[in-house]
Amino acid sequence: MLTITHLTKHYGDKTAVADLSLTVPPGAITGFIGRNGAGKTTTLRSAAGILDFDAGVITIDGHDVRTDPVSAKRVTAFLPDNPDLYEFMSGLDYLSFIADIYGIPATSRRSLIERYATAYGIDGDLGSSVGSYSHGMKQKLALVSALIRTPRLLMLDEPFVGLDPVAAHRLKGDLRSLCDAGGAVLFSTHILEVAQALCDNIAIISAGRLVVSGPTSSVVGDSSLEKVFLDLQGDSAGAAPSGATPQSAQEGPQPGASA
């Protein structure tokens, strides 16, 4: 679904992402793990087509993000880590705007908004101005706006931050449903327990380089994701855990069992 090949991005003298290659297959949830400043957000934003990059190729469902961005974005939904939304709109105005932009038909629009807004508990607030929303409500509105598009690829940057436990549980279910329907999910997180339990595949990035990726069971083995991650941070150039693939000889992650 998402193929990133030799992605490189510099900010001035600083290399944010260096020669990163990653594949996110359909039907799988892929967790993107790394320390602050490791290059996760840069990678996600580049894949979402909102950040230009220096080298490499990114394709979504066969569409090149650089040469055919509109087609690539049509099947994608991206949520940044701190979604700033239009505060001059009401919640419903915002969802209608997104629905118009993505051409969601009138017949399904109402039921999709109703379903997801109710599920995330913001159905009673859709008439209020987004400016009056709390951080969590904005996060939920942004999630609803992504889910009503029924995207083929959903990319989320730290989606669980700011969500209440009910909404977080609901989101896990929705991510799984999306993958069960043939879609793909790539999300970054610092909550390693969630990543280990939810993700079919794990990709770990350090200092802009992908240090390991593969099916969660292979990456984690008999250990825990936390231990693997901490070990890798101690020796990011070291050998990958058994069954996982170091970046230099990476294979595409596999669709896995449900979390």
């Binding site: 419903l92 118009d100 629009r109 009673g124 859709l126 008439g127 209020s128 009056s132």
Partner: peptide, 23 residues
């Protein structure tokens, strides 16, 4: 203080527009 009571809306009144008109 503006974060007052929730305002429910009628989803039946939703209209569709072209992307350009929406922008």
């Amino acid at each position: 203080a503006r974060r007052g009571t929730a305002v429910r809306v009628d989803l039946g009144a939703l209209r569709t527009r072209s992307p350009f008109a929406a922008l």
